[in-house]
Amino acid sequence: MSDRLSSLRETIEKILPDVDGVIALRTGPGGIVAPYLFSKEHPGELAELALWPKEPVPDTLKIILRAHPDAKLAIVCRGCEERGIVEMFKHAQFSLENVTLIGLQCDQQEVESCQCFKPFTVHAKLTVGQPVEGVRDPLMAKVMAMSQPEKLAFWKEEFSHCIKCYGCRNICPQCFCNICALEDEKWVETGRLPMPNPSMYHMVRAMHMTAKCVGCHECEETCPADIPMAVQFRLIARDVKEMFNYEPGAVMDQKPPQLLVLEEGEYENTGLPH
């Protein structure tokens, strides 16, 4: 852990004079970690650089770039965060022209903690740490082995714990619509807890995460009801991979299926049902 921290600090120190700031994690009062913009004006603050727990830093990048579109920034990102940044770029949330990615490879312990399938960066030119293999969340196999009624019962039970905090939507770096269907009474009734089951809130989110979820697990981590949402999104991601050969965040110049426009006659060649 400390080795990676020192290497990361050195990498940031090298790039710091050439950028307007570097987004990374900083330890604050009481050892609580949060995203921070380190700058050349205050290099001493790098003494408080932190690695863990990870934070939704792609959103931090968006917040800063929205206010300063021409800023020259660097960002320390893990595999999932890099995928998140790439997807946000593809969906025109910001330009990456002036952004340097510093890839931070997760260690074994972190991989186990997130049950991450791909805990390393693939685009960042600068990297810190040695990449390790991803793992598969055992809950995925468990859900896959269930019958249809068992699956329905499983998810209904999980979603019945929801307190509708909207935390999963708020923290998701891929939830960036200006108008959110989850705030539309047509879909999600207000003033009712527990919400109707099966829950439209979670169905809408599942559909909207299709070909977008990068598996960062931030939704699960912030969920006060411990709903294993990431498993649901990983299963949808498996289908998206099969049907569209698309993996969010993996290939920079591959268009996401939602943004594809098929020419006449092309649909028949996709092999999808009519």
Binding site: G28, P29, A34, I64, H68
Partner: peptide, 9 residues
Amino acid sequence: MIEYKNVLT
């Protein structure tokens, strides 16, 4: 100079 920080409360 751009400043971004998180204040714990």
